[in-house]
Computed example of a mutant assay.
Amino acid sequence: MSNDLKIGVIGIPGKWSTETLADAVQAKTGYRLVIDMSEVTLDLTRMQLMYRGTNLCELDGLIVKKISAEYSPSTLDRLEMLRVAEQQGVRVFSRVESMLRLIDRLSCTITLKNAGIPMPNTCITEDVEQAINTVKQYGEAVFKPLFSTKARGMTLINAKQADSQIRQQVSAFKQANPVMYIQQKLNLSGQDLGLVFLAGNYLGTYARVSQSDAWNTTIHSGGRYAAFEPSSEIIEMATQAQSLFNMDFTTVDVAITDNGPIVFEVSAFGGFRGAKEGCDVDAAALYVEHVLKTIDSHDE
């Protein structure tokens, strides 16, 4: 039955994770379609979602590896468009509602905190004076855009600076981010973790290890992937965190701090390269197997 299925991969054409996923789909189904959402047109009169002559609403499934190269409010709009395909019976992986709750950093954080998941001290404010006071309270604070990946747009502000410097940095951040998301900077000992989950099942853990003096460990900032064996406590915490979002595939970002493990976020899409290089998990192949089983069981 799999040979008859038409499953599109939404991602960034030419990028390793997107192409690897498309390769895995093609190997199982003989069908290959990599979709760049910037070229997708939604015709709400005809209820068609068109990409280069293909109506995505006529496919059997859509796997979202990446909705845009960088996150912004327009990322939410691209996801909303996929709801038209869902409504017409196309199975989207992961479900649009689940991804929408994760793209916005604040939405993810509030869901995690409401469930009692350990997280860094966090303050959300639009007030510059309150933001300055928060920096002084935290000692060192990371200002994060509500929509970002790989630490893009984040600003580290130290309370040891002169008040005028703190105010200048806070004001500069607020110009681009009216709602300021502020977290206390923690001692991560040069690494943080990605715990990989498929359909709620734990697959493995990789570490992102800093290779420089950068304050964050992202690969974008020069970090590298490494193997890591987490404690049962960490696995249980991450399992609980991802269970709040009903994702088909995701990674949970965890850090081991001086006060114990904490969760930074749950990913809307999850990382293939970290799984492959850090814990030798072929996430793309396993994900496609899950997709095929899900679609086949739905059709029976």
Rank of each mutant, 00 (worst) to 15 (best):
S2G: 15
G8K: 03
V9T: 09
S17K: 07
L21Q: 06
D23Y: 02
K28C: 09
G30K: 09
R32H: 08
S38A: 15
T41W: 12
T41V: 14
M47N: 14
M50E: 08
R52H: 13
T54S: 11
V64K: 04
K66G: 04
K66N: 10
I67C: 06
A69K: 13
A69I: 08
E70D: 14
Y71E: 01
S72C: 09
S72W: 06
L76D: 08
L79W: 00
L82R: 02
V84D: 08
E86Y: 07
Q87P: 01
Q88C: 07
Q88F: 07
V92D: 02
M99C: 10
L102M: 11
L102T: 05
R105D: 10
L106F: 13
T111G: 12
K113F: 14
A115D: 11
P118W: 05
M119F: 11
M119K: 03
C123L: 15
C123V: 14
T125M: 10
E126Y: 11
D127V: 09
Q137T: 15
Y138W: 11
E140R: 15
A141D: 03
K144A: 05
K144N: 06
P145D: 12
T149F: 14
A151N: 13
R152H: 12
G153C: 06
G153K: 06
T155P: 02
I157N: 00
N158K: 15
A162K: 15
D163A: 14
S164G: 08
Q165M: 13
I166G: 06
V170K: 03
S171F: 06
A172S: 13
K174E: 10
P178G: 10
V179L: 15
M180W: 02
M180L: 09
M180T: 07
Q183V: 00
N187D: 15
L188W: 09
Q191Y: 15
D192V: 06
G194T: 10
L198I: 13
Y202E: 02
R208D: 05
V209Y: 04
D213F: 12
I219P: 05
I219K: 11
S221I: 05
G222D: 09
G222Y: 07
G223P: 01
R224F: 12
Y225L: 04
A226R: 03
E229Q: 15
S231F: 00
E233A: 13
E233D: 12
E233N: 12
E236K: 03
E236R: 01
M237S: 04
A238W: 04
T239C: 02
Q240W: 00
A241F: 01
A241T: 05
Q242T: 06
L244V: 05
N246P: 05
T250N: 06
V252E: 04
V254H: 00
T257D: 04
N259Y: 12
N259A: 14
G260R: 01
G260D: 07
I262D: 02
I262V: 15
V263Y: 01
F264Q: 04
E265W: 04
V266E: 03
S267V: 00
A268C: 08
A268I: 01
F269S: 14
F272A: 07
F272K: 05
R273P: 00
G274F: 03
G274R: 04
E277L: 12
G278N: 01
D280R: 12
V288R: 04
H290D: 11
L292K: 02
K293E: 14
T294G: 06
D296Q: 15
S297N: 12
D299M: 13
E300Y: 14
